[in-house]
């Protein structure tokens, strides 16, 4: 299955979503999403709460199982039951609203766990890489600390480099700053900003409109379980076409 190692060039599609639907009980959260994410793209997903943004993102690495539709990642239909999703998840980093760092491991241990366990790196290689990553986000001094000794912003920076340690092809951010104290939002956004500059494909669900506008190549506005409007930040923020987009933006941009 893994023998045909295809390389995807910048601008070619890396994720394709077709007719994606998802319900939680009687609640129809996603009502048919079609979307293509291209390599190197930075895509922001905005919209009001309950619009299906997070669910959409969580379907991309199958943390939520879609009911209908297909998701192709690097050409493979990952909704196929015979696909080993764990292999594909290794190439999709995810950052959560509530950080979800592992409290039982040190900062370094958080980073080296997956690469060593999944045989991507030896213990020594993983430690070298962890040191590099921690320096990049200014947490090297905290290498041997445990997460409970970190602030929210530090935890989230740790969560970001933990995902990066798997050298993913795509990063998924699920409201990465929503649970942070206001004074810590900046430090996390800066790390993400630096990250997208490297050309890493990124999908980010966020309520930080200024940030979305600044870093995105494309913005998706979701409402009522569908993508209502999409376009460049200039198009969506500057000249929204859809009534619901206009209404949403008028409430959040002031």
């Amino acid at each position: 299955m893994e023998d045909k190692k295809l390389t995807i060039k910048d601008g070619e599609e890396i994720i394709r979503v077709e007719g994606l639907e998802k319900s939680f009980g009687k609640l129809h959260v996603l009502k048919g999403i079609d979307q293509v994410i291209r390599k190197g793209e930075v895509v922001s997903v905005i919209g009001s709460s309950g619009g299906g943004k997070s669910t959409f993102l969580r379907c991309l690495n199958l943390l939520e199982t879609p009911e209908k539709g297909k998701i192709y990642f690097e050409g493979v239909d990952i909704t196929d039951k015979n696909v080993d999703i764990n292999l594909h998840r290794q190439k999709m980093g995810m950052v959560f609203q509530h950080f979800n760092v592992f409290p039982n491991l040190t900062v370094e241990g958080n980073i080296t766990l997956a690469p060593t366990l999944l045989k991507k790196k030896t213990k020594e290689e993983a430690k070298v890489m962890a040191a590099e990553l921690l320096k990049r986000v200014g947490l090297y001094e905290k290498k041997d600390a445990y997460p409970q000794q970190l602030s929210g912003g530090q935890k989230q920076r740790l969560a970001i480099v933990r995902a990066l340690a798997m050298e993913p092809d795509v990063m998924l951010f699920d409201e990465p700053t929503s649970a942070l104290d206001p004074e810590m939002v900046g430090e996390v956004l800066n790390v993400i900003k630096e990250l997208v500059k490297t050309g890493l494909t990124t999908v980010i669900v966020t309520h930080e409109m200024g940030f979305a506008r600044e870093i995105s190549d494309r913005v998706l506005f979701m409402d009522g379980g569908i993508i209502v409007e999409e376009g460049t930040p200039e198009q969506v923020f500057g000249n929204p076409q859809n009534e619901r987009t206009k209404e949403f933006l008028s409430k959040v941009l002031y």
């Binding site: 592992f102 039982n104 766990l113 999944l118």
Partner: peptide
């Protein structure tokens, strides 16, 4: 917390590895 399992699975750990290295120690 369920988020712990989700984080581990999102890194590519299978359910057994998640249980042994993340959930059980906690």
């Amino acid at each position: 917390d369920k988020g712990q399992t989700e984080a581990a699975r999102s890194l590519g750990l299978d359910s057994r590895q998640t249980m042994i290295h993340v959930v059980l120690p906690q």
